[in-house]
Amino acid sequence: MTDFTDEEIEAARVLFSRPATFVMGCAKIEQLPDPDLPEVAFAGRSNVGKSSLINGLVGMHKLARASNEPGRTREVNFFDLDGRMRLVDLPGYGWAKASRTTVKKFQDLGRDYLRGRVTLKRVYLLIDSRHGLKAVDTEALDALDKAAVSYQIVLTKADKLKAGEAEAVAAATLKAISKRPAAFPEVAVTSAEKGGGLPELRAAIARATGADPYA
């Protein structure tokens, strides 16, 4: 795993303590904001904890709307971090209750964003640590590889596992993606509820975007 200096951890803490605001939700590719800031995007299947992770990173409870209803995120949602970067919440996948036509519409929107966004620095693909990679995740991995967008796996809800189990899941996940061309060769282990792994993930995002918290 990447070792971050105390200075990097602190700089990332300062960066993510700056004001974060919801910008817009886009249902069509033509609605996207101008690509004038570095962006990182969060993807994952429904109920994996994307909203909770985004809220945890910025220290706000209700910036991204968490829901118990699968598939609520059906737009590409943009959040501005004090004019230094944007956090992008992509539509979830693996819905049980959505029609095939609806699923395709929003998956295509996500793919269009991935392929054409010049300011996209990295995608963080969230995987529930209790379940690991599933067959439904393969399509997302394939789409990211095809788009040639650098992505990192982030295991969520690690606080639900016993000691040592999360590390085992991380190792198995890393092995599974080792030959994928666009995969970042590290797996982050996080808990939005307990805050575990969030300082390091903030530092990773700061490093990927080059955002300066002190500018």
Score class of each variant (00 low, 15 high):
85 M>N: 01
127 I>T: 05
151 Y>E: 06
47 N>T: 00
176 A>M: 06
179 K>Y: 10
128 D>R: 00
190 T>H: 05
162 K>H: 02
175 K>L: 06
154 V>D: 12
15 L>G: 03
140 A>K: 12
67 S>W: 10
11 A>N: 09
129 S>T: 08
95 W>K: 05
53 L>A: 06
54 I>H: 12
53 L>C: 08
1 M>S: 12
88 V>S: 10
37 L>K: 14
52 S>Y: 00
30 E>N: 05
36 D>K: 07
193 E>G: 02
10 E>W: 07
8 E>P: 00
184 F>G: 13
191 S>Y: 01
86 R>E: 15
159 D>E: 05
146 K>E: 15
173 T>E: 05
89 D>S: 05
207 R>W: 00
19 P>T: 07
200 E>P: 01
79 F>C: 11
99 S>N: 15
74 R>W: 03
32 L>I: 13
144 L>M: 06
23 V>M: 04
139 E>I: 14
13 R>K: 14
79 F>S: 13
66 A>L: 04
28 K>W: 09
204 A>Q: 04
43 A>K: 08
165 E>D: 15
67 S>P: 02
4 F>H: 04
169 V>K: 00
141 L>K: 02
69 E>V: 11
166 A>C: 11
71 G>F: 11
127 I>G: 08
116 G>P: 09
10 E>F: 13
153 I>G: 05
17 S>Q: 15
117 R>Q: 04
17 S>W: 14
154 V>Y: 04
22 F>C: 01
207 R>S: 03
185 P>F: 00
198 L>A: 07
204 A>D: 06
16 F>D: 10
71 G>K: 11
49 G>E: 02
110 G>Q: 06
71 G>T: 06
43 A>C: 09
187 V>L: 06
174 L>P: 12
134 K>S: 13
201 L>D: 04
82 D>K: 13
194 K>E: 08
88 V>I: 12
205 I>L: 01
95 W>A: 05
69 E>L: 11
122 R>V: 07
209 T>E: 02
131 H>K: 14
102 T>V: 12
18 R>S: 08
57 L>D: 09
215 A>Q: 13
132 G>Q: 10
29 I>G: 05
171 A>F: 12
192 A>F: 01
203 A>W: 01
28 K>I: 09
77 N>Y: 05
156 T>F: 01
148 A>M: 14
121 K>P: 00
62 K>R: 11
37 L>S: 13
177 I>A: 00
45 R>H: 02
191 S>E: 08
126 L>S: 06
23 V>R: 04
